[in-house]
Simulated assay, not measured.
Amino acid sequence: MLSKLKIILLLITFTFIWSCGDKTKKISEIVEVDMEMQMSDAYKEGYFELQRGDVLLAAKKFNEAELLFPQSPWAAKSAIMAAYAYYTQYYYSDAIFELERYLVTYPNHKDKVYAHFLLGMSFYEQIVDEKKDLKSILDSKEQFETIIRDYPSTEFAMDAKFKIDLINEILAAKEMYIARYYLKKTKWIPALNRFKTVVKDYNTTIYTEEALHRLVEINYRLGLINESKKYASTLGYNYQSSDWYKNSYKVFNKDYRDGVKELQKDKKKKIGLIKRFKGLFE
């Protein structure tokens, strides 16, 4: 009799536990569904505010959506949208913070390339000129180089290459600015090194011709004639018709006269003679 009573009690206990577990599961599912709905609502509100132009409220709503249901695939998208909202109204520091956090929190998310691009643009938009702090320039270049290296076949890669070309122009301008300063102060070695950097690292920029010419000049002044001729040869091979090459040629040939200019002078003389000749018959 006692054993039967124990069996009955055990059955009642198991039934009660199973019933509670089932209720807990249902409650958990209900809560999860409710959180997902709240997240969806917050995301929609954020998108609405973004369209309306209130980017601060939009970013707040996107952040709220991410926090409400971080396990959702939409959490990462919400993080990017918060950054984008800040970016659209020039809150670059906030955009950078959100994007860097996104890259750490969601390292394998499918939209990483877009985050790198937006991060690069956030740094890029803060570039003033070559005389200011280089941090934004270098940080921007790093992001665009990441895109070209890791995502070469994406739509962002071509734009990243274009941006790097522009950044290299700025970096080359920075080197030239410092090099010219040293040149003016007759500090030949520091100037030489700066001009070499332009030729070596930024040889697709508009400053390459002048940098090569300056290397011809400085090496000649230092008595390094072979080095000077080497740079003159490079300049002549790539930019033979440029004024910088003509200036370099004058370094070695003081009697050099520009053939085109001489021809123009000769034409002017001929025109003058013709006019005087015509005057004899008037």
Rank of each mutant, 00 (worst) to 15 (best):
Met1Cys: 06
Ser3Arg: 11
Leu5Ala: 12
Lys6Ala: 10
Lys6Leu: 14
Ile8Asp: 10
Ile12Thr: 06
Ile12Pro: 00
Thr13Cys: 07
Trp18Arg: 03
Trp18Met: 08
Asp22Ala: 09
Lys23Met: 12
Lys25Asn: 13
Ser28Asp: 15
Ser28Phe: 11
Ser28Trp: 09
Glu29Asn: 10
Glu29Tyr: 06
Met37Lys: 10
Tyr43Gln: 07
Lys44Ala: 13
Lys44Glu: 15
Asp54Trp: 05
Asp54Phe: 07
Val55Tyr: 12
Leu56Arg: 11
Leu56Glu: 15
Ala58Asp: 11
Ala59Leu: 08
Lys60Gly: 06
Lys61Cys: 08
Lys61Tyr: 09
Ser72Pro: 00
Ser72Arg: 06
Ala75Phe: 03
Ala83Glu: 03
Ala85Val: 03
Tyr91Gln: 13
Tyr91Gly: 00
Ala95Tyr: 04
Phe97Lys: 13
Glu98Asp: 13
Arg101Thr: 15
Tyr102Val: 01
Tyr102Phe: 15
Val104Ile: 15
Thr105Ser: 14
His109Phe: 11
Asp111Asn: 09
Asp111Phe: 07
Phe117Asp: 03
Leu118Lys: 02
Met121Glu: 09
Phe123Gln: 04
Phe123Val: 02
Gln126Gly: 01
Val128Gly: 00
Glu130Cys: 02
Glu130Val: 01
Lys131Asp: 10
Lys132Met: 10
Asp133Ile: 01
Leu134His: 01
Leu134Tyr: 01
Ile137Glu: 03
Leu138Val: 04
Ser140Ala: 06
Ser140Gly: 04
Ser140Asn: 01
Gln143Ile: 03
Ile148Trp: 01
Arg149Asn: 11
Arg149His: 07
Asp150Met: 05
Asp150Glu: 13
Tyr151Pro: 00
Thr154Ala: 04
Glu155Tyr: 06
Met158Cys: 00
Ala160Glu: 08
Phe162Thr: 12
Ile164Trp: 09
Ile164Asp: 09
Leu166Gly: 00
Ile167Arg: 04
Ala173Pro: 02
Ala173Lys: 11
Met176Arg: 04
Met176Asp: 05
Tyr177Arg: 12
Tyr177Gln: 12
Ile178Cys: 05
Ala179Thr: 07
Ala179Asn: 07
Tyr182Trp: 05
Leu183Glu: 15
Lys184Thr: 14
Lys185Gly: 03
Pro190Arg: 13
Leu192His: 11
Phe195Thr: 07
Lys196Gln: 15
Val199Glu: 14
Glu210Ala: 02
Ala211Asn: 04
Leu215Thr: 05
Val216Cys: 04
Ile218Gly: 01
Asn219Trp: 03
Asn219Gly: 02
Leu222Trp: 02
Asn226Lys: 11
Glu227Ser: 11
Glu227His: 06
Ser228Ile: 02
Lys229Val: 01
Lys229Ile: 07
Tyr231Lys: 05
Thr234Cys: 01
Gly236Met: 12
Gln240Asp: 13
Tyr245Lys: 04
Asn247Arg: 15
Phe252Lys: 03
Arg257Thr: 12
Gly259His: 08
Leu263Asp: 12
Lys268Arg: 13
Lys268Ser: 12
Ile271Arg: 11
Gly272Val: 08
Ile274Val: 14
Phe281Glu: 14
Phe281Ala: 11
